[in-house]
Simulated scan of single mutants.
Amino acid sequence: MSTQRKSQDPYPDLGIRHAPQMEIDTPYPNLPPIPRPNEPLEKKRARLVYQSRKRGILETDLLLSTFAKQYLPEFSMELLEKYDKLLDEPDWDIFYWATDKKAVPDYLQQNEVLDMIREHAKNENKVVLRMPDLENGQ
């Protein structure tokens, strides 16, 4: 890969993170979110439904996909944006915050969407959760 191409690549080489000589402060890559200015409401909603079920960690997939199925159809643009920003957090952190296994950081203490996810995770009605069916070929 040319030096010019490498300097323009917005994604870091994650392979170097696992080299024995590398010391890292966090096990997660620090990638900035992809900007999506002027994303239409329904496109944002559809993207977030997809991103809720394709996280990479089954526990978080199940939690967020069932949450998205129940709540995202009624979310306003403001709530969708808060949810979108929350999805930028690492999967295990979201799962541990939602299940009260890890303290919620100060910057998320007043996040109403995370509060809703935490309530959803309690599953007080003891519903057997499964991945929601895809609709409209999504």
Rank of each mutant, 00 (worst) to 15 (best):
residue 81 E to H: 10
residue 36 R to E: 14
residue 43 K to N: 05
residue 122 K to W: 06
residue 46 A to Q: 09
residue 23 E to T: 12
residue 125 N to E: 14
residue 29 P to F: 01
residue 68 A to Y: 01
residue 40 P to V: 05
residue 73 P to D: 05
residue 55 R to L: 02
residue 131 M to I: 12
residue 122 K to A: 09
residue 117 I to R: 10
residue 88 D to M: 08
residue 45 R to V: 12
residue 23 E to C: 13
residue 120 H to K: 05
residue 64 L to W: 03
residue 49 V to M: 10
residue 93 D to Y: 08
residue 23 E to V: 14
residue 80 L to N: 04
residue 117 I to G: 10
residue 127 V to Q: 15
residue 124 E to Y: 05
residue 95 F to N: 11
residue 46 A to S: 08
residue 67 F to K: 04
residue 38 N to F: 02
residue 108 L to A: 01
residue 113 V to Y: 01
residue 132 P to G: 09
residue 96 Y to A: 13
residue 98 A to V: 13
residue 102 K to F: 06
residue 39 E to Y: 02
residue 115 D to C: 02
residue 47 R to F: 10
residue 64 L to Y: 01
residue 62 L to D: 02
residue 36 R to H: 14
residue 65 S to D: 03
residue 73 P to F: 01
residue 109 Q to K: 15
residue 28 Y to T: 11
residue 118 R to S: 11
residue 69 K to T: 01
residue 132 P to H: 03
residue 129 L to C: 05
residue 131 M to H: 07
residue 109 Q to L: 11
residue 60 T to F: 01
residue 91 D to L: 03
residue 56 G to K: 00
residue 118 R to C: 11
residue 129 L to Q: 15
residue 47 R to H: 09
residue 50 Y to D: 11
residue 39 E to N: 07
residue 57 I to V: 15
residue 39 E to L: 13
residue 107 Y to Q: 12
residue 86 L to M: 07
residue 67 F to T: 00
residue 95 F to D: 12
residue 26 T to E: 10
residue 20 P to Q: 08
residue 124 E to S: 13
residue 56 G to S: 09
residue 108 L to T: 02
residue 58 L to I: 08
residue 62 L to I: 05
residue 116 M to P: 04
residue 27 P to R: 01
residue 106 D to A: 12
residue 83 Y to Q: 05
residue 124 E to L: 08
residue 83 Y to M: 02
residue 59 E to H: 11
residue 42 E to D: 15
residue 21 Q to P: 01
residue 109 Q to I: 02
residue 61 D to C: 07
residue 104 V to S: 03
residue 72 L to C: 03
residue 75 F to W: 03
residue 75 F to Y: 15
residue 87 L to I: 07
residue 57 I to Y: 13
residue 54 K to D: 04
residue 99 T to A: 08
residue 25 D to M: 06
residue 92 W to E: 14
